[in-house]
Every structure is written in C-alpha cells, then in structure tokens.
C-alpha cells in the first residue's frame, strides 16, 4: 500500500514538473501565469477562444483543438485543412468527414466550431483585442504569430 501511495505522489510530482517542462519547451513559460478567467473569450471578432492558444502553449501542443465559433469557410477548404475539424451544419455538430459523407457540397459555406490551434492562428487578423482584457497582460499575440508562421512553437 505504501508503494502504491508513493507511486501516486510521484505521478503528481511528474505531472507538475511535466507541465512546467512543456511550457518551457513551447517557449512560453509565462503561459502558466494565466488566470483562466476566460475574459479574452468574448473579444475576438471571428469567434476564436484566445484561451485555447494559451492552453496550447502550456501543453506545447499546436494540434490542440480550440473553439473558433465564427470562422466561416468552404467545406472543401476545411477538408484540406483538417478532416477532423468540427463544424456546425444545420444546427448540428459534425466533423468535415461526416459532412462530406452526408453529401454536402464542398463548395458550400460552413461555420467552424472547433479547430486546431495552429489552424485557427492562420485565420487570426492579429487585431490584439484578446490582449486588452487580460488582467496579467499576457502577450497572447506572440503565441498566435508564432503559430501563424509554420504551425509550430518556437521554431
């Protein structure tokens, strides 16, 4: 029993150390200072959740799926970007694969619900609205600009 407990506490220590290491590797260790207040969420004109970029930086995962609720694009373009992209079609949620399987035309316009952080960064107009309400003045645009270049962190 003691060994099980020791193992569990080690898991916790590794988890905490791993999170610090991941944010250091992404090149944005300050992302851990995020208050998780989600005040940046309702500031993006195209509906991206900027907190998603911070989460992607903390976990060093540019492929993390984040909310991007008002990005509109053609189904064909979405399929090229990511077949697992989550869309809103006729009030229901489905992936690009499912939408194509249902026979929806690739030229029809769809609204994104969730997409990868690196893909969302491509659509961002870099208006800076997300940085304004941040209580700790996190430079979120630095993460977006980094992902915009090549879809990777700190390259």
């Amino acid at each position: 029993m003691r060994k099980i407990n020791l193992f569990c506490y080690l898991v916790i220590a590794v988890f905490l150390a791993g999170s610090v290491a991941a944010s250091l590797t992404s090149g944005y260790p300050w992302s851990i200072a995020c208050y998780n207040c989600i005040l940046c969420k309702h500031t993006c004109p195209i509906g991206i959740d900027p907190y998603g970029f911070v989460k992607a930086a903390i976990s060093n995962e540019p492929d993390l799926y984040i909310e991007a609720s008002s990005i509109r694009l053609r189904l064909g373009e979405a399929a090229e970007l990511d077949p697992r992209l989550s869309l809103k079609v006729d009030e229901s949620e489905m992936t690009v694969q499912t939408a194509l399987a249902k026979g929806i035309s690739p030229d029809s316009e769809v609204t994104v619900l969730r997409m990868r952080a690196k893909d969302a960064a491509k659509f961002c107009p870099l208006c800076g609205n997300c940085e304004k309400p941040c209580p700790v003045a996190l430079p979120i645009m630095k993460i977006i600009e980094d992902l915009k270049d090549d879809g990777k962190f700190n390259d």
């Binding site: 905490l16 991941a22 995020c34 208050y35 998780n36 989460k55 976990s59 993390l64």
Partner: peptide
C-alpha cells in the same frame, strides 16, 4: 486522447 489534453484541462493558477 493525448497527454496534452490533460495539461490543457488543468488550471495552474490556484496551484501556483
């Protein structure tokens, strides 16, 4: 699932 999801779902602010 992948480990990054676990990190992304954790709030570090109250811990730190």
């Amino acid at each position: 699932f992948y480990p990054a999801q676990l990190l992304a779902s954790t709030t570090f602010h109250p811990i730190t």
